[in-house]
């Protein structure tokens, strides 16, 4: 079993006729926080689905801790926590019921830590998932993803629709998790301030391929003009403009 949490090896994805992605390769090393960036529709979510063994790649493969993500999905996901772009928990279950259900789906489960997280997020325990707010749903999904203490956390637009306070709480929880256990994170996000605060490296997808695979500072440096201070948002905007022109 490999210690490398995620290896994406020349993955190609085809939706109907045209190629969505071709020959995409990168990896996520232990303890590393990697952001997957790109414009809407570039294939970030599809790439994450391939990485999680939820859909097959047209070519290439993804490995999770050395396991083939498609062929050995169940074993590969044992050490992975997933937060999807749309919270998809059973709508009629409350937080407690969800914990009970998800704990039965994992070999190990830290009930106390999960309850603690839900309490910190102030998620009502007895309210059905369908009636929670968008922020509360996101918090529940994060708590469920962390319940089995994963070594790799995959987040797809985790802060989409969250207000500033919920986002901060979310961010705080992630920071705590990372500092306590040194888990690896792969996140696809348009929330560039969050990415800038959290990620060490960015994989930028553009036009069906990896356009850049750089440390965040290196990425910013590449698009800096003179001595101006440059945030990631501006760097990404310049990158997108450059590619478009």
């Amino acid at each position: 079993m490999s210690a490398i949490p995620l290896q994406v090896e020349a993955v190609s994805i085809r939706h109907a006729r045209p190629w969505l992605l071709q020959g995409v390769s990168f990896d996520v090393r232990p303890g590393e926080v990697v952001a997957l960036l790109g414009r809407n529709g570039v294939g970030k979510t599809s790439l994450l689905r391939v990485a999680l063994g939820l859909m097959p790649a047209a070519a290439g493969r993804a490995r999770l801790f050395g396991f083939d993500a498609w062929r050995e999905r169940a074993r590969a996901l044992a050490r992975v926590g997933v937060v999807p772009d749309a919270p998809d928990a059973p709508p009629e279950l409350d937080a407690r019921g969800l914990c009970r259900l998800v704990s039965a789906l994992h070999e190990r489960w830290n009930e106390e830590a999960t309850r603690g997280r839900l309490a910190r997020f102030a998620v009502p325990e007895r309210t059905p998932f369908a009636r929670l707010s968008r922020g509360q749903k996101g918090a529940v999904m994060l708590a469920l993803a962390l319940g089995h203490e994963p070594d790799l956390l995959v987040l797809d637009e985790p802060t989409l629709g969250l207000d500033a306070i919920a986002r901060d709480a979310y961010f705080g929880e992630l920071i705590a998790e990372l500092s306590e256990r040194g888990a690896s994170v792969l996140m696809a996000s348009h929330d560039l301030p969050l990415v800038e605060r959290l990620a060490e490296r960015a994989v930028v997808l553009h036009d069906g391929a990896v356009f850049a695979d750089l440390a965040i500072d290196e990425l910013k440096a590449r698009f800096r003009q003179g001595d101006e201070p440059l945030d990631l948002e501006t760097a990404f905007a310049r990158l997108a403009l450059r590619r478009a022109s």
Binding site: L52, L54, R73, A74, R75, A76, L77, A78, V80, V82, P84, D88, A89, P90, V102, L105, H106, E107
Partner: peptide
């Protein structure tokens, strides 16, 4: 309604 994605995002065969 993609209700099964919840199970498949976890280590369930």
């Amino acid at each position: 309604e993609r209700r099964l994605g919840f199970y498949f995002a976890r280590p369930v065969p």
